[in-house]
Nucleic acid binder design. Structure first.
Length: 461
RNA sequence: GGCCCUAUCGUCUAGAGGCCUAGGACAUCACCCUUUCAAGGUGGAGGCGGGGGUUCGAAUCCCCCUGGGGCCA
């Protein structure tokens, strides 16, 4: 039985990079009928905030990453960590380190001077029972370090995405498991959590590769079998550095608020740095589940390309039935104080090709919501030409309200007034919509209520 | 600085020794369609980081360099 997990720290909103690793874990679990669990790593009371973890859950649900287990909270598992600490201490796999900050700093300083790598030299592991007892009796604070076996040699694992990775254990020192304030370090807590929660596959960002050998050592000290590890490459900004706030929107919620469809962001993220069918890039969630394969994930970091996201978003908007799309647009209309009406459905097919986001609909077509629509610069100039409109609404009214008849009437009217259609049509468009660009004029008029169009025509006259 | 990961068009990628005159998508340019803007169609420009090997033959395998990224300091 496969079990994957996503374990964010609630120190901010859900980052798109985090969302992508969550997504891969989700895909993997779903594909093999496994379990996907969520764990909030909130052991850092300084930076962790409940509202952040709430926000992360909201973003995950919005993206469609529903989890089967959790959310667990690391902060509520302190007792568990403690019991394993005692076990390791008793078995001599870990030891108390009484070194002070100053002592450690001095040691590093000397190592630097000698041109040696700065590592803990293991001095406290050589303390005698009496010395330990004495320090304990004096109430000296201590951290707990893992005793890395001298002869451990090469630590290696077969990474689900990267393949074979190895590192020499001599690169590692006796690192800290529990801080002097009693809190477990990241690596220690993660190992205990993953194991006790039955996690079988750990898919995470490649920034965790350096943690993996340490965690393997902890698994070994505890006598546990390691899970399968997989490290997915980072997401980079346009300047090829790790995607961060400097690059603009990095929070999932920001994309939601900008009018991206969750299925589009899902699709985009799943394909960023991966490929399944070289001739396709638009997929449904189910297709992505069926196709997912960690071996298909690229090996190097990928640049986040907003243009491609826009494209994918439009493709997904096109895939949605018009009623559904309008429903998704609704909140964005309401945010501007606009009310969605039944006739708006007719505008969807006309506008969807011009939209990148849900928001675009409201911004491009404000004129279908209010008479107080915005007028773009070019339309302003066109309007100044003051072309004739008298009698036009009567002529329109006399014919059926469809694109074909509207076109006939407009052409005849323009000809009658001695105006070239290509000069006249933009004028009519500007009058009824305030825009110099938009869908085919006649189809646009047909989609709008006749009463609304005629009203604007006569008001202008 | 140490360790690790990595390297195909501007971007995301296909490519697992001859199928490559390196394919697709986004972006870009031109043309067509057209009342406008899109969409769509057609076409164009654009890439195997460098150097050594291995091989009859290398984008593909090996080594070095360089570049990019990450973690730690």
């Amino acid at each position: 039985m496969i079990k994957t997990r996503f374990a964010p720290s609630p120190t901010g909103f859900l980052h798109v990079g985090g969302a992508r690793t969550a997504l891969f874990n989700y895909l993997f679990a779903r594909k093999f009928g496994g379990t996907f669990l969520l764990r909030i790593e909130d052991t850092d009371p300084e930076r962790s905030k409940p509202e952040y973890s709430e926000q992360i859950l909201i973003s995950m649900k919005w993206l469609g990453l529903d989890w089967d287990e959790g959310p667990y909270h690391q902060s509520q598992r302190m007792d568990i960590y403690k019991s394993y600490t005692e076990q390791l201490l008793k078995e001599g796999k870990a030891y108390r380190c009484f070194c002070t900050q100053e002592e450690l700093e001095e040691m590093r300083e000397q190592q630097r001077k000698a041109g040696l790598p700065t590592r803990y030299d293991g001095r406290c592991s050589r303390l005698t029972q009496e010395e330990i007892k004495e320090k304990l009796d004096k109430g000296m604070p201590y951290a707990i370090r893992l005793k890395v076996p001298q002869d451990r040699g090469i630590i290696a694992w077969d990474d689900m995405v990267k393949g074979h990775i190895e590192i020499n254990s001599s690169e590692l020192d006796d690192f800290i498991l529990v801080r002097s304030d009693g809190t477990p370090t990241y690596n220690f807590a993660v190992v205990i959590d993953d194991y006790t929660m039955g996690v079988t596959h750990v898919l995470r960002g490649e920034d965790h590769i350096p943690n993996t050998p340490k965690q393997i050592l902890i698994y070994e000290a505890l006598g546990w079998e390691t899970p399968v590890f997989g490290h997915v490459p980072m997401i980079l900004g346009k300047d090829k550095t790790k995607l961060s706030k400097r690059h603009g929107a990095v929070g999932v919620e920001a994309y939601r608020d900008e009018g991206y469809l969750p299925e589009a962001l899902f699709n985009f993220l799943a394909l960023l740095g991966a490929s399944y069918d070289p001739d396709r890039e638009v997929y449904t969630k189910q297709e992505l589940i069926d196709l997912f394969d960690p071996k298909k994930i690229g090996l190097h970091a990928a640049v986040f390309d907003p243009d491609k996201l826009n494209y994918i978003n439009r493709e997904h908007m096109k895939m949605l039935p018009p009623e559904e799309l309008l429903e998704r647009i609704k909140p964005f209309a309401e945010a501007k104080g606009f009310k969605v009406e039944p006739f708006h459905i007719k505008l969807i097919p006309l506008l969807v090709d011009r939209m990148h986001t849900l928001k675009d609909f409201v911004e491009m077509a404000d004129y279908i919501f209010t008479d107080d629509f915005s007028i773009d610069e070019k339309a302003q100039t066109i309007l100044e030409k003051n072309m004739p409109l008298d009698g036009l609404s009567d002529e329109l009214k006399a014919q059926p309200w469809d694109a074909e008849h509207i076109e006939q009437v407009l052409r005849a009217y323009a000809q009658d007034k001695g105006i070239k259609p290509r000069d006249y049509f933009p004028f009519v468009r500007a009058v009824i919509s305030g825009k110099s660009v938009g869908p085919s004029l006649f189809h646009l008029m047909e989609a709008m209520p006749q009463e609304m169009v005629l009203r604007r025509l006569t008001a202008r006259n």
